[in-house]
């Protein structure tokens, strides 16, 4: 049951991720990307990491992708005449070479990799639950956690600074 579910989700993820790249219409691409996030959340649920699954949906599907969709709708790229972006031959070559190189690196990295199993006796199935996660974050990884939140604060202040109107700038 779980295994067939995994294969179903995995194939759906790959299909949607491919459609993100293939779709001509940028809005379709964004929507496929949202479905991809959902299927990845499905994988998290299969791994018994419900917290991660829901946070993935809240942060990516619920907030970031709304902004993506927002911007793409505003720019309305599909309707202006040059929706099919003209790619020159040289950029196609460059893309093929770069992608091929990445592919080779991936293959060479995964060639000697072995699947690390788990020990059924010591494995804790509750490791992905929110209580366990909070315990670990606030004891073993307290400093990195707090530093990350300071980083977020800095980013937030930066965003406010960028968004602020300059003196004398016109209101649109």
């Amino acid at each position: 049951m779980t295994e067939s579910l995994f294969y179903f989700l995995a194939s759906l993820t790959l299909l949607c991720a491919l459609m993100v790249v293939i779709s001509k219409n940028p809005v379709h691409s964004v929507l496929f990307l949202i479905i991809t996030f959902f299927t990845i959340s499905g994988h998290y649920v299969l791994l018994n990491a419900q917290f991660l699954a829901v946070v993935n949906i809240i942060v990516y599907a619920g907030a970031i992708m709304v902004l993506f969709l927002f911007v793409i709708m505003f720019l309305n790229m599909s309707k202006t005449g040059d929706s099919r972006m003209k790619t020159s031959t040289i950029s196609k070559f460059a893309g093929a070479i770069a992608g091929g190189l990445l592919f080779i690196v991936l293959i060479s990295a995964l060639k000697d990799a072995s699947v690390v199993g788990y020990n059924p006796e010591t494995y804790n199935s509750q490791v992905g639950m929110v209580e366990t996660l909070g315990q670990v974050l606030f004891t073993d990884y307290l400093l990195p956690f707090e530093l990350a939140s300071v980083l977020f604060l800095v980013a937030m202040v930066g965003a406010v600074m960028l968004g602020k109107k300059e003196e004398g700038e016109s209101h649109f």
């Binding site: 949906i57 809240i58 709304v66 209580e131």
Partner: peptide, 25 residues
């Protein structure tokens, strides 16, 4: 019964806007 019920609701609420955005666009 999930131990993340509040977050689940929050996640679903944050998705609510897609119906409007897709339809409007």
């Amino acid at each position: 019964e999930v131990n993340i019920g509040v977050l689940y609701i929050f996640g679903v609420v944050s998705l609510g806007v897609y119906g409007l955005m897709i339809g409007g666009w």
